[in-house]
Design a protein around this nucleic acid. Structure first.
Lengths: 99, 99
DNA sequence: GTAGTAGTTAGACAATCGTCTTACTACGAA
DNA sequence: TTCGTAGTAAGACGATTGTCTAACTACTAC
């Protein structure tokens, strides 16, 4: 079973978060999680292969945006909402409300 | 004399702005402009060559973040504050206040 | 056990990016 | 007109990125 590592939020740089959110695919992931709460990777519709999907979750995780835990064969993922709002106030609201 | 082109703000995508702000150098430019108002390119200290500096201003301009006008041999640049606050509320505040 | 499902890893590939140097244009001052 | 300054354009370079396929691990259900 894979053990995911998550960065300490205080050590995440603004440029890293911006970089993570610079891909439409990853923005879609964050929006889906923001609207529907914790989800397994495969519950979010994306037009890319399994491997690419996995890669995008990696990037978001490394940038401190999401938290992933294992549940059976699934990886349940959610937004690190409280911490994000503290470290980058307004960011989440921006992503979730921009059309 | 160069004529700069600026995108219509409504047509700028979130991913584009995020991409533009994913580089520490460009974040530094936006912060300098946010703190000191309109500036010429060379008034912002950056540890890169003239050409690279010019490139970063291009990227920021293309993403709708800055407005550039010509004044003699200088290119005076400022943040498109009002429009940005309308299109991406919270973005500017986020960039300017995150340490 | 065997199959099926969820996800990761490794490797490859083309495309994009950040950077540079060199050469250029445009303006202002002497 | 000549010189210096501000900035752009073109081209090159290595690094990073987004994508894929194929092979793999780990769990669940039969």
């Amino acid at each position: 079973m894979k053990c995911y590592s998550h960065p300490v939020m205080r050590e995440v740089a603004l440029a890293d978060v911006m970089q993570a959110l610079s891909d439409p695919c990853r923005i879609a992931i964050v929006r889906a999680l923001g609207e529907r709460g914790e989800l397994a990777c495969n519950e979010i519709e994306l037009d890319v292969s399994k491997a690419t999907r996995s890669h995008h979750f990696d990037v978001l995780r490394a940038a401190g945006l999401i938290y992933t835990r294992t549940e059976g064969t699934k990886c349940m993922t959610s937004i690190r909402e409280t911490e994000l709002n503290k470290r980058f106030p307004g960011l989440l609201k921006l992503v979730l409300s921009t059309k």
